[in-house]
Amino acid sequence: MSLGAEFAPTLEAAKDGEEWAWADLYREVAGPVKGYLASRGAMDPEDLTSETFLQVARNIHAFEGNETSFRSWVFVIAHRRLIDSRRARGRRPETTTLLEATADSTGGDVEEEALDSLVAEELLRAFEQLTDIQGDVLALRILGRLTLEETAQILGKRVGAIKAAQRRGLMALQQRLDFQGVTQ
């Protein structure tokens, strides 16, 4: 999904307070942001997503950039919100809410959904085995579809560290999923 050439006029309209523009922007980023927050243990990913988006609205007047920049910026804010929520809870992230967070919006075949849920459950359990940084990196790269550099920027790390984290994270996931036969 991408607004493409429509992004610039949509951004301008959003700065003017046009609801349709905000609706378009929200549709673009809400799913990945919510998925990212949920996969990283946010207690209430929906609330956090809307908080993130309202923060975007508060600062939108100062934003200049393209769609990629916008997406990355949204994730910067989402990540900060996530850190806040983790601090507030004072415990490690859990990865059990992604299914709940996505349950409302999934549609289609019931059997397919059930299968998706099973696989997703396995994926989420595998995600739980990752270190925090590995989980953060893979969630941003896979769910947020962010680049190495954007991920490094958001997490305040070097690109080399991001590469190392995703290497090890993927190895760990592969080992676990191989063990469970999920990828066979």
Partner: peptide, 27 residues
């Protein structure tokens, strides 16, 4: 698989609600 889990559009009621709040914040 992970991307498909989060690639769905949010419910339209949610979109409208957030969009209205965001627009209000901007204004």
């Amino acid at each position: 698989g992970l991307r498909s889990l989060t690639g769905h559009l949010p419910p339209e009621t949610e979109v409208r609600s957030i969009a209205a709040r965001a627009a209000a914040v901007v204004l």
